[in-house]
Design a protein around this nucleic acid. Structure first.
Lengths: 149, 149
DNA sequence: CCACATCAAATTGCACACAATATACTGGTT
DNA sequence: AACCAGTATATTGTGTGCAATTTGATGTGG
C-alpha cells in the first residue's frame, strides 16, 4: 500500500509502497538462509517445521499449522519430504485416527545440534542492531495481527 | 534469526525469531491483497509488474526484474499470463532482438484507473499509523540492502 | 443406531520464487 | 567471415502457499 506522507501524489508508485519492501525483504531473507540451511538439507519452511517439532514433538498437523500460519495444503507435501529425508515420522493418533502424530526420528532430534548455530549466523548477516530487529519484529507482529482478523 | 535480547536462552525458539514474523507478515499481506486484486483479475506479483509498467511502459524484462528483484524464471511465465489476459504485449526490441519490449495494451493502461483505489484500501486494512508504516518500510529496506550484498 | 454435521488431513489446481541450464542474439577479434 | 565471450530471455525442476474440494473418522441429535 502507499507510504502516506501524508497524501502521496502517486499512490501507485512502487518505491513508496511498504508492502513491496516487506515482500522483497521476506524473499531476500529466505534466500539468505539458503547457504546456512543447505548444510542441514533443509529449506526455510522445512526449518520452521523442525523448530516447532524440536519444541513440541508429537503434535498434530493442525497445531503445527496454527503455529506456522500454514495450512495442510502446504504442510502435507512438506512433511512427506521431511519423512523421506528420515527426519520425521508421520504416525496416527491412537485416540483420534484422523490426526497425525508428528514425531521426530533420531536423525531429526540430532539435527537440532547442527541448527543451533544458524540463528546467530543469520543475526550477523542482517547487519541490524538488536533494537532494530526488535522494532521490526513488533511491527511485523502487529501487522500480522491486524491482517489476520 | 533470534531476537537477541541480549542472549536468548533458546536461539531456536520460533516465537523469538524476527525472520518468522517477517515471513508470516509478508504471507498475510499477499493474502490481504487478494480480495482487492481479484476485482482486477491480478495476483499480487502481477500487480507489482503492472505498477512498474504504468510508470515505465516499454521496458525490458531485465529492467523489470531489477526493479522488482525477480528473475526471468519468475517473470517470463508471469508475463505470459498477463499477455493471455490481454494486458501486456511482449514484443521484441528493434535495436536488440534479445530484449523484450513490454508494452501495455489499451486494457492494461485502462486497468490503472481501477487500481488507483487499492493502495488506500490496503492502508486502512493494515491498521498501522503512517509513522509505523514509514518505520517498517525503512527497516525492510535496510534489511534488504544488507542481504543483497 | 443411524443420518448428519463436523473435523483432520489429503488432494487438486494454479501461481509464484529461484537455482541451474539452455537458447539465441550481439559485439568484438582475428 | 568464423570464432567467441557476453548478454537477454526462456526452460526445467523443485518446493512452496493457498483456495477449493475430497476423503475418512468422529460425535451428536433424533
Amino acid at each position: 500500500m502507499h507510504m502516506s506522507s501524508p497524501l502521496p501524489e502517486n499512490p501507485l508508485c512502487l518505491d513508496d509502497q511498504v508492502c513491496f519492501s516487506l515482500y522483497s525483504a521476506a524473499n531476500a531473507m529466505v534466500r539468505a538462509y539458503r547457504p546456512y540451511l543447505e548444510q542441514l538439507q533443509l529449506t526455510y519452511p522445512q526449518y520452521l517445521v523442525m523448530m516447532v517439532l524440536w519444541e513440541r514433538n508429537g503434535i498434530s498437523v493442525k497445531l503445527l499449522g496454527e503455529q506456522l500460519h500454514l495450512d495442510s495444503g502446504t504442510l502435507t507435501p512438506l512433511l512427506k519430504r521431511l519423512e523421506l529425508k528420515g527426519l520425521v515420522c508421520r504416525g496416527r493418533s491412537q485416540q483420534d485416527e484422523r490426526m497425525r502424530e508428528l514425531a521426530l526420528t533420531d536423525a531429526g532430534q540430532a539435527l537440532r545440534e547442527q541448527a543451533m548455530s544458524v540463528p546467530l549466523q543469520m543475526f550477523c548477516r542482517t547487519g541490524l542492531t538488536p533494537a532494530q530487529l526488535t522494532e521490526l519484529k513488533q511491527l511485523c507482529d502487529q501487522l500480522w495481527s491486524q491482517l489476520a482478523e
